[in-house]
Amino acid sequence: MKGCLIRLQLFLKLWFTSIYSLMSILLIPIVGLIIFNYGSYTVDDVSSLVYEKTATIWFVFIIQWCFSIDLDSKFYNQLITYPIAKWKFLLERALFSAILFFGLTSIVTFPLGFIFGKFMWQGFVFTVPVNLAIGAFVIFGTMIGKHSLGGIIAGIFFWMMILFGGPLLRDLNAILLIYGSVESFVSGDSGFLAGENRWILLNRLFYIGLGVLCMVGAVFKTNRKTEG
């Protein structure tokens, strides 16, 4: 555990001293400023734009950065010679990515929450399953491609499906906060287990399941690669 915390400190130091991190950190605040200064948007439009359309691609780039440090520099080939379980290495890097993403997104949500109300926090929590799914998909792509480039390509493909695949995905559409019925569900105005909301619960469970499946596939691919 102590070793994990030391590596986390090193990752955070690398992150906050890189130009890449500065560009990534500025992405969502810039969107928020544009919304506040030039747009007359409803709260559901804002939450969808920030958390469903922008934050997802933000997460892709954060994960790509975390894995590129080890995979692209070939440090991974040296690291796996040490007595460390391969699945622990994978989950540790995924944890670092999640800490960076959810921590920075929470910081962004504070001012948006003051401006638009608590629905911003509720919308943030509602999109967590989609973020978990896209994150696991990026990690799986990274392991398949044996390079962070494979992960970022997989992530961009997933993001494009989120943006433009609504008619094809139908009830599995990832962009839901723009709909009034979903807004009522997220804000708690309608019953959580009401019959008309079951499809929303199934939608979120689908993305949680997809995330778990992709992560298991990434772990299996990593163990199989290193044992071969």
Rank of each mutant, 00 (worst) to 15 (best):
M1G: 15
M1K: 14
G3N: 15
L5N: 09
F11T: 03
K13I: 10
F16V: 09
T17Q: 08
T17S: 07
L27F: 07
I28W: 00
I30N: 11
I35H: 00
N37H: 11
Y41M: 14
Y41S: 09
V46Q: 02
S47R: 11
S48D: 00
V50C: 02
Y51Q: 02
T54P: 00
T54S: 00
T54Y: 05
T56S: 04
T56C: 04
F59P: 00
I62W: 01
I63L: 11
I63F: 07
F67I: 02
F67K: 00
F67H: 02
L71I: 13
L71K: 00
D72N: 09
S73I: 15
K74G: 11
K74Q: 08
Y76C: 05
Y76L: 11
N77Y: 05
N77A: 14
Q78D: 13
I80Q: 04
I80H: 01
I84Q: 11
I84R: 00
W87D: 10
K88Y: 12
E92D: 14
E92I: 00
A94W: 01
F96N: 09
I99P: 05
F101V: 04
G103H: 03
V108H: 02
L112F: 06
L112S: 03
L112A: 08
G113S: 07
F114Q: 05
F114M: 13
K118R: 15
K118P: 09
F119V: 04
F119Q: 12
W121C: 08
Q122Y: 08
F124V: 01
F126W: 10
P129L: 10
V130Q: 04
L132C: 09
A133M: 06
I134P: 01
A136L: 03
V138N: 03
F140G: 02
F140Y: 14
F140W: 09
M143I: 15
I144G: 06
G145Y: 03
K146C: 14
H147Q: 12
L149N: 04
G151W: 02
I152M: 08
I152H: 01
I152W: 04
W159G: 10
M160H: 14
M160I: 10
M161Q: 14
G165V: 14
G166I: 02
D171T: 12
D171R: 12
I175Q: 01
I178D: 04
G180I: 07
S181K: 13
V182W: 05
S184F: 05
V186K: 01
V186Q: 03
G188V: 01
G191L: 13
F192R: 14
A194D: 11
E196H: 14
N197F: 12
W199Q: 07
L201M: 03
L201G: 08
L205A: 06
G209A: 10
G211N: 08
L213D: 03
V216F: 08
E227Q: 09
E227V: 11
